[in-house]
């Protein structure tokens, strides 16, 4: 359409950058009780539960090796064994974070809040950018809490199941940091995928359904029909990174591919949000 050219007016109240304002606004909405307690509660629960299953299902605490894919006592006794469970928690955490990001995004459409937000901040890239930053910060806190719970529960479990923890002191800080990184990055990308599906479908229920359906159904079907590419699918790649790399996908390849999936999800989200009409 044609436009009438007029003199641009300055915004006298916008003393702080739009992205900072958007982040602060989004944070108030994210940091409310149901998302906060729901997110931290569910991830802490899974951390404890999966850690317990890993320790309680050790066939032979002294065995050097076990069935393929099964955690052994030797695995847990290594440096970094304190957070070994994070690799197994990662996929469930990914689903939780995907759901949280999808809810935080699609509920703006479900409730109609998106109309008010876009009217108040017409720069949609700023609006979604602020949301992504706020949700990322929330996810960092969730991941830190998960790492903390996992490491905190590891020592009593190791004592109960007679796992030697002598080597856990070796490079503990480095192991914790790398474990945190390998856990956080895939989980963040799961969140971005949830955000992308929510922006496209504008429904939290549909977004969660599509996300979980892809991970649990579609990738498994692809695994049956084309097993050679399963490890390159989002679920396979993110799991590989969380596990610190696998035989099929090295850590560096997994990281590159994970970052590519994250960038793709962010770009698709921003493009769709920038260009589509705001309707409920």
């Amino acid at each position: 359409m044609t436009t009438t050219l007029t003199t641009k007016t300055t915004n006298p109240i916008a003393s702080t950058p739009g992205l900072v304002n958007t982040f602060r606004s989004e944070w108030i909405r994210i940091w409310h009780s149901s998302l906060r307690y729901g997110g931290f509660g569910v991830l802490s629960f899974f951390s404890v539960l999966i850690s317990y299953f890993i320790y309680s299902s050790l066939a032979d605490p002294t065995a050097a090796a076990g069935p393929p894919g099964r955690t052994t006592a030797a695995d847990l006794e290594q440096a970094g064994g304190m957070i070994h469970a994070l690799g197994s928690i990662s996929t469930l955490a990914g689903i939780v974070v995907l759901s949280l990001w999808a809810i935080a995004t699609a509920s703006d459409y479900d409730s109609g809040l998106i109309r008010v937000l876009v009217q108040a901040q017409p720069s949609r890239l700023t609006l979604l950018g602020g949301k992504i930053i706020a949700l990322s910060f929330f996810t960092v806190l969730l991941s830190a809490a998960t790492v903390f719970v996992t490491s905190a529960i590891a020592r009593p479990l190791a004592r109960a199941y007679e796992v030697d923890t002598e080597q856990w002191r070796i490079d503990a800080a480095v192991e914790m940091a790398s474990g945190f990184f390998n856990f956080l990055v895939p989980v963040l990308v799961w969140g971005l995928i949830g955000l992308m599906i929510a922006v496209l479908t504008r429904s939290s229920g549909t977004a969660i359904g599509v996300g979980i359906g892809w991970l649990l159904v579609v990738e498994n079907l692809i695994g049956i029909t084309a097993p050679d590419i399963t490890h390159l699918m989002p679920g396979g790649t993110l799991s590989a990174l969380a596990a610190g790399g696998t035989n099929d996908l090295s850590w560096s390849s997994a990281l590159s591919l994970t970052l590519l999936y994250g960038a793709l999800a962010a770009c698709i989200s921003l493009f769709a949000f920038r260009n589509r009409d705001i309707v409920s």
Partner: peptide, 19 residues
């Protein structure tokens, strides 16, 4: 509005968005 937030927090969120 977000029903689980107080009126104050709902308005605080909108005020923050507008700086």
């Amino acid at each position: 509005f977000i029903g689980s937030l107080s009126a104050w927090d709902n308005l605080r969120s909108m005020a923050a968005l507008r700086g």
